[in-house]
Nucleic acid binder design. Structure first.
Lengths: 149, 149
DNA sequence: TTGTATAATGCGAAAGATTATCAATTGCAA
DNA sequence: TTGCAATTGATAATCTTTCGCATTATACAA
């Protein structure tokens, strides 16, 4: 049984900055998240966290993920499939969007300044200020060589 | 107890065209949907359907809504809140998108050809063909008079 | 460092939405 | 009209997420 204390991580620092109590579990979850560049769901986060420190309950993962979202540390995404998925909220670079491969389910991130600007303009013209954009496009890979699959 | 047989409706015709067996319940649900121009969830559809013919179970509403979606008659939407919402799939005019009022939760539809084109271009450039776009923007109404909250 | 108030955790139960099961019923082609 | 496969209603089951509560750990002051 692993009982390792996780090292600090960029997200653990963020956690402290927001004045959140930094428990061992939160440190571990923050570590796992800092180490992820995909879009894990809670079950997957739980798996990764337990691999580091087995003294973690899935309820805590749910709670932590919600707490982090409320504090702007994480963003919740919905790619269909009935479970929420999470990714680190990048304060750095602008919004990014997601292309979902219709066949494999793989998620590919992309950015596009023109799209950012257009969405903002549209919303402004409707008399609103843009708060959040939820955009994911589902696409199917164009076969270069025919007869793919 | 209402036991009225619903009249046919545009969606009921579509149902027949797709070779689906047109039961009384499906006729009623199709009628209710044809009559709706909002984005009801299953619970709400069930309420509306029962008002027309009380011999309907919510299980049938779930089943029918799924069947209609699989046959391109309905589109499932997710506006947050944990329940799926449905709207008639317009084969006529192009895609439309949704602006959700951050304060009231109200859903406002809009279309934008420039946005259609840009999304298509982006996806093409990534080597994919566009299958579906899931886009909703959350916005907050700009106060004309200052001092709002 | 030690003690303490308070907040967080673990575990299992509960909630909420959706799907599956299965006997009884219905639509539809012959 | 008949027969049969598909559909329905009622309810159990499933799946994800949250809650309740006793126990434990954290931050902070002395």
């Amino acid at each position: 049984m692993k009982e390792q204390t996780s090292p600090d991580s960029p997200l653990a620092d963020l956690c402290r900055q927001r004045g959140l109590k930094l428990t061992g579990q939160r440190r571990t979850i923050a570590f796992v998240l800092s180490d992820s560049d995909d879009h894990p769901d809670v079950e997957e986060l739980y798996r990764r966290a337990v691999a580091v420190d087995s003294r973690i309950s899935i309820a805590t993962v749910y709670r932590t993920v919600r707490l982090f979202e409320e504090n702007g540390i994480l963003q919740r995404r919905d790619f269909g499939g009935g479970r929420a998925r999470y990714e680190v909220a990048d304060g750095d670079h602008g919004d990014h969007y997601h292309l979902i491969d219709a066949d494999s389910g793989k998620v590919i991130e992309f950015e596009n300044a023109e799209l950012d600007a257009l969405l903002d303009t549209i919303v402004q013209q409707m008399g609103y200020g843009l708060v959040t954009t939820r955009l994911s496009v589902v696409g199917r890979k164009k076969a270069k060589t025919r007869g793919g699959n």
